[in-house]
Amino acid sequence: MSAFLQRRLASPAKVAWLVALTWVGCVYALGLVHQPDVAGNAGGGFWALVLALWITATLSVAGLAGLKTRSKTAQAAIDLFTPLLFGAFLFFLWEVVVVGFGVPGALMPPPSAIWERILVSGDLLWADFRQTFLKGVLAGYAIGCLSGFAVAILADRVPFLRRGLLPVGNFVAALPIIGIAPIMVMWFGFDWQSKAAVVVVMTFFPMLVNTVAGLEEASRMERDLMRSYAAGYWETLVKLRLPAALPFVFNALKINSTLALIGAIVAEFFGTPIVGMGFRISAEAARLGLDMVWAVIALAAVAGSTFYGLVALAERAATFWHPSIRR
């Protein structure tokens, strides 16, 4: 069916009309649903409109996905716009369903209410962000990744240690490490140090396992070549094996960027000063202030994606030679 649709929707003009139609329809429906007599008891006509919009939105996404242009920038723009339209429509559905059916805000707030909450309580969110992310996450991430890397180098230098540490590391990496959070809170107190400690333990093992695997990446031939150049262990490490290991190291850095945020937030459930994203989530959830909970989640999602994106950018800059990046 998809192929049929794409043949029917091959012309950019048709797709542009569909997108514009969906857009106007969605804006109209949003205006309609927020009127006091519609909100909470929207009638059949309104839901028919939403259903029609759903169909046009599906058609426009299908049409956009099928568009092919010669120009590289235009193709990149289309590839970016397609998922954006898809996501925007999901948010539209969320808003319309929640407002249209009058779902109580304590159960599921609409996106508009969450956005208002973000605008109103910027100071509070910034304080939480500073406490959890800038202090706990970044400190723990740096210490955990660096020590994982250092131990990996040490394990590489001492083969006995590598054969012993690697199976143990692989085993520990699969364990529910998050469970040590209450112990760390007991040892390091309520403030950000205990959250950083949890993050250190969570990020250490992925880094260790990945770096050790990456150091195996340089082939026998390449190592022999370095030997024939009379390069010593350290020279071979710095000039051949570490660069070859970089894709693995960055893989660990990316995995760790999401793990770190999760670790810090969950650790705050076990005890915290009265600031921090995890504290805000559990405190607001207890008094059913779900708009604030979702605002913190949105903040965490933006922080997490930005962190991940920065690591990915650094990866592009550092491993420009790798086949997956070189086009």
């Binding site: 956009l64 996905a65 998922p83 898809f86 459930f269 559990s282 959830a285 965490a300």
Partner: peptide, 26 residues
């Protein structure tokens, strides 16, 4: 489905940057 690949895949990936574990209790 090419449509799904283009529109859904980016969201599958970005769904993981939402620290869902952190809001699991809620």
């Amino acid at each position: 489905l090419r449509t799904l690949q283009k529109s859904l895949m980016p969201w599958v990936i970005s769904s993981q940057t939402v620290p869902i574990l952190a809001i699991a209790p809620i």
